Amino acid sequence: MPNIALELGKQSASLGINAAYGEQRDVGGVQVIPVSLSWTGFGGGSDDAGNGGGGGGGWAVPVGAYIRRGGEVRFEPNIVSLLTVAIPFVWVAGRALSRVIRALKK
Results as ranks from 00 to 15, higher is better:
residue 35 V to S: 02
residue 45 G to Q: 11
residue 67 I to T: 04
residue 72 E to N: 06
residue 49 A to P: 01
residue 25 R to V: 09
residue 23 E to C: 08
residue 55 G to W: 09
residue 52 G to Y: 06
residue 104 L to I: 01
residue 89 F to I: 13
residue 101 I to K: 14
residue 61 V to D: 15
residue 33 I to F: 06
residue 20 A to G: 04
residue 86 A to V: 00
residue 49 A to I: 00
residue 48 D to P: 04
residue 49 A to W: 11
residue 4 I to T: 04
residue 13 A to R: 14
residue 25 R to N: 11
residue 42 F to E: 04
residue 83 L to S: 04
residue 7 E to C: 06
residue 34 P to G: 03
residue 98 S to R: 13
residue 103 A to P: 00
residue 55 G to N: 05
residue 28 G to W: 02
residue 21 Y to G: 01
residue 100 V to R: 15
residue 16 G to I: 01
residue 42 F to H: 06
residue 68 R to C: 01
residue 99 R to D: 14
residue 80 V to A: 10
residue 63 V to C: 04
residue 33 I to C: 08
residue 80 V to R: 14
residue 99 R to L: 01
residue 14 S to A: 10
residue 28 G to Q: 08
residue 10 K to Y: 09
residue 103 A to N: 02
residue 98 S to G: 01
residue 64 G to N: 12
residue 37 L to V: 06
residue 31 Q to C: 00
residue 3 N to R: 11
residue 97 L to M: 11
residue 16 G to D: 14
residue 76 E to R: 09
residue 59 W to F: 14
residue 41 G to A: 01
residue 101 I to P: 06
residue 103 A to M: 10
residue 105 K to H: 08
residue 40 T to D: 07
residue 60 A to N: 05
residue 91 W to E: 10
residue 2 P to Y: 01
residue 70 G to C: 02
residue 10 K to R: 15
residue 72 E to D: 08
residue 69 R to A: 05
residue 27 V to R: 15
residue 8 L to F: 12
residue 85 V to Q: 04
residue 41 G to I: 03
residue 18 N to F: 12
residue 63 V to Y: 07
residue 92 V to I: 07
residue 4 I to S: 08
residue 100 V to K: 15
residue 51 N to D: 12
residue 14 S to R: 14
residue 101 I to Y: 05
residue 7 E to G: 11
residue 106 K to P: 15
residue 102 R to V: 01
residue 18 N to G: 04
residue 21 Y to F: 07
residue 31 Q to F: 03
residue 14 S to H: 13
residue 53 G to N: 09
residue 89 F to Y: 10
residue 103 A to T: 05
residue 69 R to W: 09
residue 98 S to K: 10
residue 49 A to V: 00
residue 1 M to Y: 00
residue 4 I to Q: 10
residue 61 V to C: 11
residue 28 G to L: 00
residue 48 D to C: 03
residue 46 S to W: 06
residue 4 I to F: 15
residue 3 N to V: 05
residue 52 G to L: 02
residue 103 A to L: 13
residue 75 F to V: 02
residue 27 V to K: 15
residue 72 E to G: 01
residue 104 L to Q: 13
residue 88 P to D: 12
residue 43 G to Q: 03
residue 24 Q to P: 02
residue 99 R to V: 05
residue 37 L to W: 06
residue 71 G to P: 02
residue 60 A to V: 10
residue 28 G to C: 01
residue 103 A to K: 05
residue 106 K to H: 13
residue 84 T to M: 11
residue 71 G to Q: 12
residue 47 D to H: 02
residue 49 A to K: 11
residue 82 L to H: 03
residue 103 A to D: 07
residue 34 P to A: 00
residue 29 G to I: 10
residue 96 A to I: 08
residue 29 G to M: 04
residue 36 S to F: 03
residue 53 G to E: 09
residue 46 S to K: 11
residue 26 D to E: 15
residue 59 W to Y: 13
residue 1 M to W: 00
residue 76 E to G: 06
residue 2 P to A: 09
residue 39 W to L: 10
residue 44 G to S: 14
residue 44 G to T: 00
residue 101 I to V: 10
residue 58 G to I: 06
residue 101 I to L: 06
residue 83 L to V: 05
residue 68 R to F: 01
residue 44 G to K: 05
residue 19 A to C: 11
residue 24 Q to H: 07
residue 38 S to E: 05
residue 47 D to N: 12
residue 21 Y to N: 01
residue 39 W to M: 09
residue 75 F to R: 09
residue 52 G to K: 06
residue 8 L to V: 05
residue 11 Q to W: 00
residue 51 N to V: 14
residue 103 A to F: 12
